[in-house]
Design a binder for these strands. Structure first.
Lengths: 205, 205
DNA sequence: TTAGAATTGTGAAATGTTACACGAGCAAGT
DNA sequence: ACTTGCTCGTGTAACATTTCACAATTCTAA
């Protein structure tokens, strides 16, 4: 139980957490089982039990898991007990959509800084945040010790900005730019490209 | 070579395709190798060769792969030789961002229909498309034989709309709604939830 | 024409992941 | 107290994926 925990296990925990929180909101039960959770998510109950068993024993035989307790534990494991401030780079359509998105609240994140290179946009307020010029990126993010950034810029600007984010101390990047970025091994990166996702389905049509 | 090809292999092909098209745009070479491609993508060269070998022999010993030829072949495999019309459900901030996104062009997709339930928005033009009322969804998509849809609605509406899309003949859904959807096995689904992606990184911080 | 360097495609080995199946614990009812 | 029905946690087996390593092919240059 003290080994390295597989990435693929970690990547499923947020899914469990989201489903559990939904159950908690529905409020029809205080308890659930690996079987019920699995049925909801299309995952085998054994996998859910095995995944959770990497971190401790959260359930009770015969009863299952206490929903709120498991939520708390998952939040602790994923370090979501405090809210992470996130830097948003790029205030185009997508940046605006993200900045205005209410869904970060209560799930561990808040957009705290927005940068853009368009002087027209600098000073504008989006989702309660004033857009700063991207020239201030290094100074601001280093001073404020930002750890997480979302890249919502055109592809051509993305690599340079990724480099600058890493230099400024950012170590987790969610990139919407449609290309592969080069970052040091110790920096975590996640990609979101709608075209890639669509292309993953057309093969089966 | 005639067996079922693993999903995980299919899911990497769009990544290869994107990188190859970038190389083609850069125009500095007409040929590449599994090693060079792997270096760019952070993937082992053996894996790239193995993945491609499921579909045929596209390379030449000593030389590597002809970039444009491999692009063509990948597009054929992924059925991207023709442009797929896509239905967009939800014309909020995210819907607007997607409808205005220029990145679908030339990568096999175009937003062809947009639906929303807000009468205020119906009739408005976004990215060259007139927003229709969601009541017309079934009639329009069945008549036009839409196969692919993007769900960009709030969570509460998503399951009902997914059901309606499936009834209308849609068999590939890209969902931005932050929940798990129940769809028949024969329907392919891809999820995109920024919070899930962020939560997959905080564990490592 | 030959030698040397590069690169593919692929069986086989190594590694990683999922599913199975069962002992053990708990709850509820008799 | 006992029985029945659930459900967990987990060792092991089954399955899936990745990596290794090498024969075969191609290109280049002497």
């Amino acid at each position: 139980m003290a080994d390295e925990i597989p990435d693929i296990v970690i990547s499923r925990l947020p899914i469990y957490l989201r489903a559990l929180r939904r159950m908690a909101e529905e409020g029809e039960q205080t308890t659930t089982s690996s079987q019920e959770l699995g049925r909801r998510l299309g995952i085998s109950s054994a996998q859910i039990r095995k995944d959770l068993s990497h971190f401790g024993e959260f359930g009770k035989q015969g009863t299952g898991y206490h929903i709120n307790y498991l939520i708390e534990q998952l939040q602790l494991i994923l370090k979501l007990d405090e809210t992470w401030p996130v830097a948003l780079i790029g205030a185009g359509y997508l940046g605006h959509a993200l900045a205005s998105y209410g869904g970060f609240e209560n799930r561990g994140f808040e957009i705290a800084w927005i940068f853009d290179n368009d002087p027209q946009k600098v000073g504008e307020e989006v989702g309660g945040i004033i857009i700063q010029h991207v020239d201030e990126l290094e100074e601001t993010l280093t001073r404020e010790q930002a750890r997480i950034a979302i890249l919502a810029t055109p592809a051509d600007a993305a690599q340079e900005l990724a480099d600058r984010l890493v230099d400024a101390g950012v170590c987790a990047i969610l990139s919407y730019a449609p290309l592969n970025l080069n970052v040091p091994d110790e920096v975590k990166i996640q990609y979101s490209d709608p075209v890639i996702q669509l292309q993953r389905m057309t093969y089966y049509l």
